[in-house]
């Protein structure tokens, strides 16, 4: 693997390989000294143009557990905020000898631009770009579903026949996009439930089933329900009348929680708006994978960095 830019471009084999590698990585975290020497001498840069403490720390922890040197290049307090171009930043990082760059950017396509531009030779990991993709989130979500659903050894398996329902702001969600593509690649059936204002144009051409009624969607007994965060800036832009109505129609409230079968997973990429898209009881229920998703995120990111920096690149040299 040279870069990880999108979930859409991931093959089924590669996705399974990443999850299987993550399975091994998850054992490292349980050790008294949670370190592998795999990436000793490698430099991983986390280049974050948007604040995201969760994703950034997850990647940095993953890199450290593999003994890589980690440089943090955050938008605040660096020349990035003074209008330095992506090109200049990339060339600076190249001069510092970065082996991998983990980039989070508000502009869709910025990681691809870095990977294609020739400004830097490092492997590029997309840690979320605009409203495009967030592939490691999709990988960790798929990994979390696989671990819960396939009790025992899940190595080598995909998600064939698993039903996943994604609820909420699909239009602005890179997490939803990455999940739709990856889950589909892994054989899962994806359904969406949202008001039409929060669904992208042309969605009818995507491999998904659309619901405008959350209760109807839940009647189809999904194996996992993924609730998306409603950003505060959407609340006043006429996507829906007000948060109360959104919550009533599209929120996973206690009533809907009680209607779920016992083994339905409740997922959320975080951070959650408790009481808006998800009730406190739903977020904290035993069916919720929210905290596992965080732990699995570190394992998946270890796997991605490992495969990128110690595997494919060495073979190509």
């Amino acid at each position: 693997m040279r870069h990880l830019l999108s979930a859409k471009d991931l093959s089924r084999e590669t996705a399974i390989e990443i999850m299987d590698t993550a399975e091994g990585m998850s054992e490292v975290a349980g050790r008294s000294v949670p370190r592998l020497p795999a990436l000793r001498g490698k430099t991983v840069v986390s280049l974050f143009y948007e604040d995201s403490t969760r994703t950034r720390t997850s990647f940095e922890l993953a890199a450290k557990m593999l003994s890589a040197d980690v440089l943090t290049f955050s938008a605040k307090g660096s020349s990035v905020s003074k209008g330095e171009s992506l090109k200049d930043t990339a060339q600076t990082l190249a001069a510092m000898g970065a082996d991998a760059v983990v980039v989070r950017h508000a502009a869709s396509g910025a990681p691809k631009l870095l990977a294609d531009s020739g400004w830097i030779d490092a492997g590029v990991v997309n840690a979320g770009d605009g409203t495009h993709e967030h592939p490691t989130q999709a990988l960790l979500d798929a990994f979390s579903i696989r671990r819960r659903i396939r009790s025992g050894d899940s190595t080598g398996t995909a998600l064939d026949g698993v039903k996943v329902l994604i609820v909420g702001d699909i239009l602005h969600s890179r997490v939803a996009r990455s999940n739709i593509w990856l889950l589909n690649t892994l054989g899962a059936q994806v359904s969406l439930a949202a008001p039409a204002t929060l669904l992208p144009r042309g969605i009818e051409h995507w491999p998904v089933k659309i619901h405008f009624d959350l209760d109807r969607a839940l009647e189809e007994k999904p194996d996992a329900v993924m609730m998306l965060r409603i950003q505060s800036e959407r609340m006043h832009a006429a996507y829906f009348p007000n948060p109360r109505e959104y919550s009533r129609f599209w929120g996973l409230n206690d009533e809907r929680l009680h209607g779920l079968s016992d083994d339905t997973l409740i997922m959320h990429p975080g951070p959650m708006n408790r009481g808006l898209e998800i009730s406190a009881a739903a977020a904290d229920s035993s069916r919720s994978t929210v905290r596992e998703q965080v732990a699995n995120g570190v394992s998946i990111r270890m796997a991605v960095l490992y495969l990128m920096l110690s595997g494919a690149r060495r073979e190509s040299q």
Binding site: K8, G109, G130, T131, R201, G202, I203, H205
Partner: peptide, 15 residues
């Protein structure tokens, strides 16, 4: 342009 492609690329659509 607004359509299936802009949704996939995550670039805001121009109807």
């Amino acid at each position: 342009n607004e359509g299936a492609l802009n949704s996939e690329l995550g670039l805001a659509g121009w109807p």
